[in-house]
């Protein structure tokens, strides 16, 4: 794959603030995700994880600060182009119910005027990568399982071969078996594609399994960033200790963070 690696893009946030109705939901002094690296974002519900991702993908505009993807600032005029260099997967419901799985996957490529042959070839590649049976592609989202829907959503996100992948709790609505399968497959995909990945989860085991680097958030700020072991050994604040303890990870067997 090495020869076909796309250009690498990093994500940079500087002094970013997002305010909802006068309440500060996000306040990030500095955040950099290096090209081709994976960062897992973790934190309690309402701490601002989704807000951060929505800012990066251009769904929200910050009240303050700058967001750059591959050095290009996110602005109204650069937004569409940047969005096409990023893949975005959300928890569930992101597939359009009026389109079949294949149509969902090919939607943006068609909008860009890709010829059918190119679309077909790309879909073939992605089917292998995401391990989706071909016959599934002609079904509507309502006709496939939740796990399959998330694989299709990943396929759609990867269709344009973006440099950045943004995943907002892609697995949290799935049952544990399917979820662990998908965790394994996702990790494999990230390893093969070597894209810049920002992966949001509220599950520390998942974060530690998927990503070498974890950022813990609370109340709109990033408290600490590091490997799972670093977070466990040198928690920066009592909240980090408490958050990790609450996940009961250290009692669980078979946890081998990479």
């Amino acid at each position: 794959m090495g020869a076909r690696l796309p250009a690498a893009a990093g994500i940079d946030l500087q002094d970013v603030q997002k305010i909802y109705d006068g309440v500060k939901a996000l306040d990030i002094a500095l955040l950099r995700v290096e090209p081709r690296s994976t960062l897992a974002l973790i934190g309690p519900s309402g701490c601002g994880k989704s807000t951060l991702l929505r800012l990066v993908v251009g769904l929200l505009t910050p009240e303050r600060g700058s967001i750059r993807i591959a050095g290009t600032p996110m602005r109204p005029e650069t937004r569409l182009e940047l969005q096409r260099r990023m893949g975005y997967v959300i928890q569930e419901g992101g597939l359009f119910p009026h389109l079949t799985a294949a149509e969902n996957v090919a939607l943006v490529a068609r909008d860009l005027g890709w010829p059918d042959a190119r679309i077909g070839a790309r879909i073939q590649e992605l089917l292998e990568l995401t391990q989706i049976p071909r016959e599934l592609l002609d079904r509507f989202p309502a006709q496939i399982s939740g796990g399959q829907r998330q694989r299709v959503a990943l396929m759609r996100a990867l269709m344009l071969d973006p440099e950045v992948l943004l995943l907002d709790e892609p697995l949290s609505s799935l049952d544990p078996m399917i979820r662990s399968d998908l965790q394994r497959d996702l990790k494999q995909v990230f390893g093969r594609l070597r894209k810049t990945v920002l992966f949001v989860t509220h599950d520390m085991a998942e974060a530690a399994f998927i990503s070498g680097e974890i950022a813990i958030m609370n109340r709109g700020t990033i408290l600490q960033r590091g490997s799972f072991q670093e977070l466990v050994r040198n928690p920066a604040t009592p909240f980090v200790t408490e958050f990790i303890r609450a996940q009961r990870l250290l009692d669980a067997p078979n946890l081998t963070p990479t």
């Binding site: 251009g58 769904l59 975005y88 939607l107 943006v108």
Partner: peptide, 16 residues
């Protein structure tokens, strides 16, 4: 909500 979000985030032109 999730569909509106997806429609606006995956790089579709406003027309599409």
């Amino acid at each position: 909500g999730p569909l509106a979000e997806a429609a606006d985030a995956i790089g579709l032109s406003p027309r599409a």
